[in-house]
Design a protein around this nucleic acid. Structure first.
Lengths: 243, 243
DNA sequence: CGCCTGGTTGAGAATCATCAACATCTGTGG
DNA sequence: CCACAGATGTTGATGATTCTCAACCAGGCG
């Protein structure tokens, strides 16, 4: 009865059958452990564009895996500025930064229609005791997040605008490819403002850099659609390899 | 027989007696659990200035707590540039970024004579199973590291030179105060180059900003010695609160 | 004493932010 | 289906901040 062509927002798919299970939380688990994980995963209705999954200072109770669509996370600094801290694509986990203080350190907002799997952390903590590899995997996820943040730090403190944008595009490209989508033709779900905010640049600079890349035939830009024409040249521009 | 005035490099002090135990790893532990932790902690001979505690790509086996002195951590990017990712003072934990890949993602170098406690992670993992609060605490430490990195990201992407330096000085000040040292008069253990690298600025800019702060009577600089004269003004300069 | 590293100060150049005008897209309601 | 308004994106001109290059100074060490 279930459509063999999975609907991206279908909430009935279990971890075992999920097309994302090779890159998502179950990555390191045995089949029988995936079943245990599956039992604690909750799958709610999809979020609409602009909806929040959680907000900064909300009590922390779960981490989340994106099933379809894309989200952004951001923090609001004391002086009221928004800082975009990350973008999340299918198979990626968000919400780990809440573990420390038991309150979320950032907000997560849907950039388009999104469905997520919710993994209640109380249960996960208990489950980790039973499945050591899951505990290990949670440590790995957090440590990966630290490493990614460091990459971004390097990008912001050492590289100039073109390098930052090139690196960002390559990162999106690689993540699309991991989801078995085209690495050269994709849609950027975020606004120029969010991109700029994330990369520490203004909207205008983002726009100018993209125009310049287009003029030099590195890629074609059509609003949010990007077609990378010369990925090698882009990689040369981006000295830092992004995963 | 033991000196009541603890020598800062004394390796015989147990976690129970350590003056740092209110801010270090044992922070969340019961007395009996501290004893268990103490059994797995190794305390080697002090490191000399310039010595490495571990190097990027080394196999990950332990996390470390600074007992005395100070360390810096840094990564080397693909194109050979050094990126200083953090400074560590007594009571602070480093090495957590190695958990993910089982190899250290950064190098750690002593900026002066340093003594550290080594906490073998294999045992810690096993111990975490027995002491749930320790597992929770490890998650907290990592999540705090993510939050700190995000703070730094905000600093680099939103703030200009004076704000960055002011915020950095306040961070050091707060950490000195936490170790019951003066919050207004202290020694910066790192070079201007390391400071600049960490803050995404050049040596010259650091030097100029410090000179300017001195001219406007915010503080006095004598080489690495800093005396903060007007900490309120400094806080106003630094919009972002740093822990 | 001289060398070398680390730090300071100055002048000029480059990058990116700012401000402003305009173009395009989106969605809403007639 | 079209018209309109608001949001989003592009492009240009100008200016501020910070980097780069260079000279110079101070301290530590052989």
């Amino acid at each position: 009865m279930v459509d063999s062509q999975q609907c991206p927002h279908d909430s009935r798919v279990s971890c075992t059958d999920c097309v994302l299970n090779s890159i998502c939380l179950p990555i390191a688990l045995e089949a029988e452990d995936i079943v245990k994980l599956d039992e604690i995963v909750a799958r709610g209705r999809p979020l609409q564009k602009g909806d929040h999954l959680y907000r900064q200072e909300d009590e922390f109770s779960s981490i989340y895996a994106v099933r379809s669509g894309s989200m952004k996370s951001y923090t609001v600094t004391d002086d009221g500025q928004e800082l975009v801290t990350g973008f999340y694509f299918p198979g990626e986990i968000l919400g780990m930064d809440g573990i420390g203080r038991n309150r979320h350190a950032s907000s997560a907002k849907a950039m388009e229609t999104v469905s997520v799997c919710e993994i209640p952390f109380d249960n996960l903590g208990a489950l980790s005791q039973k499945i050591p590899s899951l505990q290990q995997h949670c440590f790995q996820l957090m440590s990966q997040e630290i490493i990614d943040d460091r990459q971004l730090l390097a990008l912001l403190s050492k590289c100039q605008a073109e390098e930052r944008v090139a690196t960002f595009l390559l990162s999106v490209s690689a993540r699309k490819a991991r989801n078995r989508l085209s690495a050269t033709h994709f849609r950027l779900p975020m606004s120029r403002a969010d991109m700029g905010n994330y990369l520490g640049l203004t909207v205008e600079t983002i726009s100018r850099v993209l125009s310049k890349f287009q003029k030099s035939k590195l890629l074609a830009v059509d609003n949010k659609e990007i077609s990378i024409a010369d990925i090698c040249a882009l990689k040369e521009l981006s000295a830092l390899r992004f995963e």
